[in-house]
Amino acid sequence: MPRDEKVEPVTAPEAEDRRRFLKQFLMKASGVAVLVVAGEKVFFSAHAADSEAVPPGTGEDYDPTRHRYVYLIDVTKCIGCGACVRACERENNVPKHHFRTWIERYMVSRTGDVAIDSPNGGHDSFPPEVTGDDITKAFFVPKICNHCTNTPCVQLCPVGASFRSPDGLILVDEKRCIGCSYCVQACPYGSRFIHPETHTASKCTLCYHRITKGLLPACVEACPRAVRKFGDMKRLKDEVSEIIATHQVQILKPELYTEPNCYYIGIGKEVR
């Protein structure tokens, strides 16, 4: 598939809206920035890789039309430690027994039997396997919302509470959501849930509150093996865009033609 097609041209909000959006961020996000930049001390700066150049993000200069996010998961590196799940839980205040990200463990025996588990979503890492079979290969598969381009969840939302943002993320407007859970039914990946307290749909936002300030998503930040990579298709010399453009990558459930923006390296036929 030609990559150019994926990178959509600047979508709806024109210059005026963009200015409005920036103003919104000035008003709403700067308060937070003051909170996290405690005193004179700067606690946050961008990702370690390009840390010198980037000033502490406050989100004030953020323009959603100039980004197009992608995500890449290298399954061959994952050790199933669960640091990402725990980081996500803390960062996004995820309720117990619900998951914005989780890790699955696949254990395949010589006879081709597949045992899959994900105790508490991999939150507390994994206990030793107990299948008793002769396991010939095993691997961990971290999952997040695939932020599909052709997403069934947004299509089915009756009130426009689930939407696809100009920067390519699937987000939920908590103030509009009526809690019908149609989107939960529609997601083929099980990425959505109804929040037990707000009674609205909830899901991975790729840590929108972080990435708009130049920070990495909490799960990417927490991963000790660089399994999870976060990229921006509209950024020049983007590492993830480069890997997707030059390597063999896979997506989940391609037969459903949801066009995920979360790519995988190294997943096999067993992966659900």
Binding site: F21, Q24, F43, S45, A87, E91
Partner: peptide
């Protein structure tokens, strides 16, 4: 304004409090 949704929601979601920093924050 930018599709069949409330555009202000974008800024609201972006203004959620940040919890984790990174190792650079700690090194300070």
């Amino acid at each position: 304004e930018a599709g069949s949704y409330r555009y202000d929601a974008l800024a609201e979601i972006a203004s959620k409090p940040v919890v984790h920093g990174n190792d650079i924050s700690c090194r300070e």
